Simulated scan of single mutants.
Amino acid sequence: MFLKKDKILNHELKKTRESFFSKIKNLFLKKSKIDINVIDHIEEVLLSADIGTKTTIKIINNLETRIRKEKYKDSKEIYNILKEEIGNIFLDVENICLEKKIEKRNKKPYVILVVGVNGVGKTTTIGKLAFFLKKKGFHTVIGAADTFRAAAIDQLEIWANKAGVPLIKQHIHADPASVAYDTLQSAKYKKKDVVLIDTAGRLQNRISLMEELSKISRVMKKIIPDSPHEIILILDATTGQNAFEQVKKFTSFVKISSIILTKIEGTAKGGVVIGIMDQFKIPIQYLGIGEQLQDIKVFDGKKFIDNFFEYR
C-alpha cells in the first residue's frame, strides 16, 4: 500500500513532531483564552527543540508584538500566528531546486562539491543523490576525492555501483585535487550533466581542510573556469545544535549553496532546521530519510510546517 507524500512526510518526521510541535499544539488546545504565562511556555518549547536562542528570541518578539498590536486573545488565533512566524523564516530563504539549476546551465557539466564532517552520512547521501539525479534523467559521475580514508573510497564505490553511476577514483592518500581534476576531465569529455565530488571531513583540522578545498576548487577551474557551481553541506539532524555549529564553521571558509539534512526520521531535534535557515539563510534542498538508495526527498518548507501545525 502506498501512502500520499504528505502522509509519508508525516510519518518520517514523527519524532520531531511529537517532541516539539505537539508540545505547542497541546499547550494551545488546553487553553481557550491566552494567559500571561503562555509566551514563556512557548519560548521553553522552542528552546528545547534546538531552534537556537537567537531564532527563538526573534520568533517570541514577533509573536508578542503582533499580540499587542492586533489584540489577539484566542488560542487558535495565536497558534496560527506562531505557525505564520515560523513559516516566514522559510519564505525568507530563496530555494531554487537543484534540478532547475542544473537544467538552467547551458554548458555541461554542473559541478557539485559535497562537504561535511565524518559520520554525517555524506558517502551514503552522495550515492542517494546520484541515484535521484539519474532518475531525473541527468547523466552523473562521482569523484572520490576523500582520499584520507580507504573506507571512504570503498564505501563510495559500493554506493556508486548501487546507483549505477560511474566513479572516478585513485588510491588512498592520493591528491584529492588530482581526483577532482580527473573527474571533471572525464565528465567534460563524456558530456556528463552532473559531477558530484566527495571531500574529506576532517573539520577538527580546519586549516588543512580549508587549504584542501581551496586547492580542489583552483584545480577544477582549470577544466571548468566557473566551477564548482554548487557546494552542498551534509548535516546529521540527530546532532541538533552541533549541526548548527558545523554550518557556522564551514561557512567561515567556504560558500555553502545548500544543505542536505540526513537521519531526519530518527531525531527529535528537527527544530534545528528552523534555526539554520533563519541564521544562515541557506536553503535545505533534500532530506535523507532512511538507508535505502531511494530514501532522499526534496525538502518542502511549507509542507514541513503544515505537517506539524495542523490544528485539531
Rank of each mutant, 00 (worst) to 15 (best):
Lys302Ser: 03
Thr140Gly: 05
Asn106Thr: 15
Lys215Glu: 10
Arg218Tyr: 08
Val45Ala: 08
Ser252Phe: 01
Lys191Glu: 14
Ser178Trp: 00
Ile231Gly: 04
Asn61Thr: 14
Asn88Pro: 06
Tyr110Phe: 15
Ile96Lys: 11
Ser208Phe: 06
Tyr110Cys: 14
Lys23Thr: 07
Gln241Leu: 11
Phe244Leu: 13
Ile223Ser: 11
His229Arg: 15
Gly143Ile: 13
Ile102Pro: 10
Glu291Ser: 11
Lys222Arg: 13
Thr55Glu: 06
Gly116Glu: 00
Ile86Phe: 05
Ile231Met: 09
Leu184Val: 11
Arg202Asp: 01
Gly121Trp: 00
Arg202Ala: 02
Ala243Cys: 03
Leu63Gly: 14
Tyr189Val: 15
Cys97Ile: 05
Ile34Trp: 00
Phe21Leu: 15
Val111Ile: 12
Lys30Gly: 00
Gln279Trp: 01
Gln285Pro: 03
Asp146Pro: 04
Gln204Lys: 06
Ala180Glu: 06
Leu3Pro: 05
Val115Trp: 00
Phe2Met: 06
Gln285Phe: 07
Ser32Asn: 07
Leu167Gln: 11
Ala160Phe: 03
Leu46Cys: 11
Ile274Cys: 10
Asn88Tyr: 08
Thr53Lys: 02
Arg149His: 01
Glu99Ile: 14
Gly127Met: 08
Val111Phe: 03
Val194Tyr: 02
Glu44Gln: 14
Ile24Phe: 07
Trp159Pro: 12
Leu13Ala: 08
Ala145Leu: 09
Ala177Met: 03
Lys83His: 08
Ala200Met: 03
Glu265Asn: 13
Thr56Glu: 11
Thr140Ala: 08
Thr239His: 08
Arg105Glu: 13
Ala130Leu: 04
Ile42Arg: 08
Gln170His: 01
Tyr79Asn: 10
Thr147Val: 02
Arg105Thr: 14
Leu13Asp: 06
Glu245His: 03
Asp198Gln: 12
Ala187Pro: 10
Gly266Pro: 09
Thr140Tyr: 01
Glu265Pro: 04
Lys108Ile: 13
Phe250Pro: 02
Gly240Pro: 09
Phe299Ala: 05
Lys255Arg: 14
Tyr181Pro: 06
Ala237His: 04
Ile42Lys: 08
Ile282Gln: 03
Asn10Glu: 14
Val114Ala: 02
Gly270Tyr: 07
Asp306Val: 07
Lys33Phe: 00
Glu77Ser: 07
Phe280Lys: 10
Ile231Thr: 14
Thr238Gln: 13
Ile39Ala: 12
Asn95Gly: 04
Ala200Gln: 03
Glu70Ala: 04
Glu12Met: 11
Ala130Thr: 07
Ile8Leu: 09
